[in-house]
Design a protein around this nucleic acid. Structure first.
Lengths: 336, 336
DNA sequence: TTGTAAGCGTTATCAA
DNA sequence: TTGATAACGCTTACAA
């Protein structure tokens, strides 16, 4: 029933031909007689032969594999991106490894190590940004890579695809202010992350433009892990919230904030206007109409794959990829 | 800057030793002088050596890799399971490939082919169930595998881990009926899928128990793809809905149904009680309190990994794994 | 303690 | 048109 994997050698013995002949017949090479070819291909199908890509990879040095290293595929934002990446990669006959880091530095290190060890042809990574060492190590190893969603501004050599975080932060904050919510709570992500920094810059620009002061107590960092936001928001609203607008680093945080507000009897948008980031709702129809900044996840994912493919196929190319994809604000009920 | 990958040979030349000595020194084998070992390990670190797992795999026949084949990682249900699987696998030093099939049969075939070609040690698959051929092919190839979330009841040889779908369907329907919603619309998944069949059985049992007739027009299949549900629900409510309860095959469909209801000015739970399946809310705090059947995603994922690991480590074992994990109904606002 | 040789399954090269 | 041989990077068995 369950058998060993069939190899070229097995076919060769069965067919009374050399391993080499079998190989070329299956690869549809020119110099093989049509009859032999047919015999061999039929035999291969009959015996359920599936080539051992590993062995081929060992020779060619290419595995047709891309590693995707993200903090958490369970976050729909990453789930969607991973799906898009996989889809694009598959079109080019690439398979993807998915490794979660939970934004932990050591796990990121191991992820990179594993990916290199498995000889992936390239790596698409959303870096934890606790330091540049991991990425530098990647670079030293000569594995083509591109950062997605985050960048190191002081490292011009690390290629990236991000969205316009500053603009996103600006648009969201501006809208909240203009809709009469002058005090905007910013539930931001960890400060070491470039997208958090840049969204904050946008938040500040919107305040400056409106002639409003920045209130430090309204800028709060929440951990990326689910559950953390609940504590923070609960604490804030329990001691008389002075804010009426909330801008969250991402949709998951925004949902969680709205969840707590609901639990406490507040209504969105009547009591609090809420805007998220990632626009997950573009792909998942959730019955909570959350306004959100759309980062063009699809475009980012596709570009990331295109970039690493370019690097794989043009190892000598010195082209630098620093791409900032436009963002837009999508308004829904949560800020009506 | 960017260099070629460092091999054992490179280290050997640099150190003036044989490849073999380098290999054993790095593996901390006994028969090597402490001094040599230290020199070599330092050198390896300095040169950024990362072993080529591929080459080793070719010899050992093991890749420390598991393929996870699901319909769609962008569905948080699968996103969460993939995350859990990855986490458990990582603990045992396994890396996972993720391949999406979009429940398409040909894509599933290619996914399996790819996985086998890449010599994965095992496969965890949520089968599209359009036929058994793909899985049979898997079996013929001798790759350890386990089905997750779906099963072939007529194929006792295909091991699986599923949740108690019948019970889930029963509990959900029963609750809707008992809370005064005697006409329950069942937005079911494709009928070829075992979980859809079994949830339907539960739906019927609840009706039988309550002495209510089954109305065929209240059992509707919706495609798994996002957007499909919208059309269906829209059509149904536009021509005077006779139902007041909705039980959906999964949370994504339930959300989408609630989304449409909201758009049409209906309220949940006042006008319609809604129950989903998957209990995504246990991991993602969404400000729409959806009642849902909890399938213990975490347990299922963990068991799936344990099972394939068992199969990898005990190739001769004849143990059959047919696991049905208990389900529970989690009540929230959507059925208050 | 270290080195040599063979082999994992495939493909590229060259010879027959 | 086909076959023999070497090579990819590593590990295992055995010899030095």
């Amino acid at each position: 029933m369950a058998g060993r994997k069939v190899t070229l050698k097995d076919l060769a013995i069965k067919a009374g031909l050399s391993v080499n002949t079998i190989s070329r017949a299956l690869k549809d090479k020119e110099d093989i007689s049509p009859a032999t070819r047919k015999t061999i291909q039929d035999l291969a199908k009959e015996m359920g032969y599936v080539g051992n890509a590993l062995a081929g990879s060992l020779r060619s040095g290419l595995t047709k594999t891309i590693a995707v290293i993200v903090s958490d595929v369970a976050n729909p934002h990453f789930g969607i991106m991973v799906k898009d990446i996989e889809k694009t990669a598959r079109k080019h006959n690439y398979t993807i490894f998915v490794i979660n880091t939970e934004d932990d530095y050591e796990m990121e290190e191991r992820a990179i190590y594993t990916a290199i060890g498995k000889n992936v042809d390239a790596i698409i990574i959303c870096p934890s940004q606790r330091s540049t060492d991991n990425i530098r190590f990647l670079q030293k190893n000569g594995v083509p890579f591109v950062l997605i969603g985050r960048r190191f501004r002081e490292e011009p050599d690390f290629d990236y695809v991000i969205c316009d975080d500053e603009k996103g932060g600006y648009l969201a904050t501006k809208h909240l202010i203009e809709s009469g919510r002058e005090r905007v709570l910013f539930l931001n992500g960890p400060g070491r992350i470039s997208s958090a920094q840049e969204r904050l810059e946008g938040y500040k620009r919107a305040h400056a433009e409106a002639g409003l002061p920045i209130r430090d107590e309204l800028i709060v960092e929440v951990g990326a892990s689910a559950g953390d936001t609940r504590q923070v928001v609960k604490r804030l609203i329990e001691r008389d919230a002075t804010f009426t607008g909330i801008f969250a680093f991402n949709d998951v945080i925004a949902w969680e904030a709205a969840y707590v507000l609901q639990k406490h009897g507040y209504r969105v948008p009547d009591d609090f206007g809420v805007i998220g980031f990632d626009n997950i709702q573009s792909r998942l129809f959730i019955p909570f109409q959350l306004s959100s900044v759309s980062p063009s996840k699809g475009k980012m994912s596709k570009r990331a794959v295109d970039i690493v493919l370019h690097k794989i196929n043009h190892p000598e190319s010195k082209t630098r990829f620093r791409e900032v994809i436009d963002t837009a604000l999508v308004l829904r009920e949560s800020t009506k």
